[in-house]
């Protein structure tokens, strides 16, 4: 279908039109200037401050002294043993990074497992009903994240809904330990970020040409084959976009791990907060934030590359 729509590129034929086009460009820049300025200041300003702070010396009681130092960056990767001063890798940071990445990946996976059927369901409703289902997806956003997290705590707690239900069925004798575990953190994050997976998936599934599915069935493809060889390749851009949208906030999540995880095992967001609070090591906190940013950027690059590749595939 895409090939039918020929995009017509217009080259300005006369000087007058070239001038007009130039004016249009200038006007567009002019009109977008306020937004660009706000974005530049609000988005890159704090980043540069963070970058700058990461190269300063920590002040005794929090804050920084205006003296250059690489200590903050050094401490991201290495540490001296607290007691005998031997140089060691910063294994605490490593295991916290690993936990964050691991939980974020599991969260993303869970969101795909639950988000894909949801998006597929919505996209295959009659057009008039779709907006209603989409509207339902946005309902959780009406309530503050903190309150929803407290509600999940009630559900998972020792005398909460899940345990009461399982006990009433006679499946368990003693209440299960659900709250304050990594499982609880993953459930919480998957719940919170699920809409971010459903929405981009819905957008791609909605544009899916269902006659292709019929064609596949006509050629004796099994259901699984249709899913694997037709649907998934076609909705890949939405899948990748949704995964990125879920992975990025998960890896920096702060409230959910703190409340549902019981604060016993840190995630990256909590580690960074610790440096600006009781740890009193702002340069290390800043350096860790930048490290997190780099991880996110790598994830984004992966996204851009794989979507552009799938775009090429799409044209075939």
């Amino acid at each position: 279908m895409d090939q039918n729509i020929q995009s017509v590129v217009e080259f300005p034929e006369s000087k007058l039109e070239r001038l007009k086009a130039k004016q249009r460009t200038i006007r567009n820049y002019f009109l977008s200037a306020p937004a660009l300025i706000v974005l530049t200041i609000a988005a890159s300003g704090p980043l540069f401050i963070m970058l700058f702070y990461s190269f300063l010396t920590a002040d005794e009681w929090g804050g920084v002294v205006w003296q250059g130092s690489l200590q903050g960056w050094f401490e991201v990767f290495m540490r001296h043993d607290i007691f005998d001063g031997t140089l060691l890798p910063a294994d605490a940071h490593l295991s916290i990074f690993w936990r964050s990445i691991k939980l974020s990946l599991v969260t993303t996976l869970l969101c795909i497992v639950f988000g894909f059927p949801t998006a597929y369901f919505i996209a295959t409703r009659p057009r008039s009903q779709r907006s209603f289902w989409l509207f339902l997806v946005t309902v959780p956003f009406w309530t503050n994240l903190l309150i929803r997290t407290f509600a999940i705590m009630q559900i998972l707690s020792h005398s909460g809904f899940v345990n009461k239900f399982l006990q009433s069925l006679g499946l368990i004798e003693e209440p299960l330990r659900l709250l304050y575990t990594e499982t609880a953190v993953t459930i919480g994050m998957a719940y919170v970020y699920l809409p971010l997976m459903v929405l981009p998936l819905y957008a791609t599934i909605e544009r899916l040409d269902f006659s292709l599915l019929e064609a596949a069935y006509d050629l004796y493809a099994s259901r699984l084959q249709v899913l694997r060889r037709v649907i998934i390749p076609l909705v890949k851009p939405g899948l990748v976009a949704g995964s990125i949208l879920v992975f990025i906030p998960s890896i920096g999540a702060y409230v959910t791990p703190r409340l549902l995880g019981g604060g016993k095992s840190l995630m990256l967001g909590n580690l960074i907060e610790l440096q600006f609070g009781q740890g009193r090591n702002w340069p290390l906190g800043a350096a860790l934030s930048i490290t997190l940013l780099v991880i996110v950027m790598v994830a984004m690059l992966f996204y851009v590359r794989s979507t552009s590749r799938s775009g090429v595939n799409h044209a075939h």
Partner: peptide, 10 residues
């Protein structure tokens, strides 16, 4: 203290 704390929280 801070070193002990981070080690404990990892």
């Amino acid at each position: 203290y801070s070193g002990i704390w981070t080690e404990m929280m990892k």
